[in-house]
Design a protein around this nucleic acid. Structure first.
Lengths: 114, 114
DNA sequence: CATCTTACATCGGAAAACTATGTCGTCTCC
DNA sequence: GGAGACGACATAGTTTTCCGATGTAAGATG
């Protein structure tokens, strides 16, 4: 499997958007988020725990997501399930637009015409 | 003029690509690069001198661009004109592809289906 | 000659992601 | 039931890199 990984710097400034978008449809806990992002990007974004958890704390502190420990049906230790808050949903919309402007601006420089 | 500016973090990891692409067609010096990037992005990317010059030095050290002081026809102090090297042209191609993969990966997460 | 402008340069700070490591509960296996 | 393995969460320290502030020098301007 040829899965070129990203430049760590490429992720900067876009991680929050990725996390909010991942939580858009349903609540998730850490391991699920890592797996989902990896699956949705064909392995391009390979989040590390040291990247994910501080980011989740940042988003929670901002009030965009809410974490709650839950016992999973399959047993095991309780996991911290994060849910997108209404504020987070608004933020997701804004960050999507901000990313669109970013992508459009990059196109303006590297794409020539597109 | 409503020119929403980018999150500083959004630039990280993409600056080199922008600079290489700006120099693709013709050599440029600092002030021109700032103006060109600003124009090509409708003011979205507003490079600062403290951002640009260290970046140019980084690219020059990598052998992707070559700087040479030149006297402009219109007079004034000599300016340092940077030219894309053959190696830099190869690097530009690679960084373009890398950006495409990045953009595609982001779409995979935030675009849902697109 | 004094001042202003322009271009180049650099230092210190801040933000954020990564590496490495640690802790705590469960579960498994003997 | 005890020992180790494992999974999930957590965090300290390092690195990268962009930005704000500031400095220097050459020429233009009056």
């Amino acid at each position: 499997m040829n899965t070129p990984t990203m430049n760590p710097q490429q992720l900067k400034g876009h991680l929050d958007l990725l996390l909010l978008a991942t939580l858009e449809d349903s609540p998730r806990y850490g391991g699920q988020i890592i797996a989902d992002v990896q699956a949705a990007t064909d392995g391009f974004f390979n989040l590390r725990e040291g990247t994910l958890y501080p980011a989740l704390h940042r988003l929670e502190k901002a009030g965009w997501i809410a974490g709650e420990f839950q016992q999973l049906p399959r047993g095991g230790s309780p996991v911290k399930v994060y849910t997108l808050t209404p504020t987070g949903r608004t933020e997701l919309r804004e960050q999507r637009e901000k990313y669109e402007r970013f992508a459009h601006a990059v196109r303006g420089v590297i794409g020539g015409s597109i």
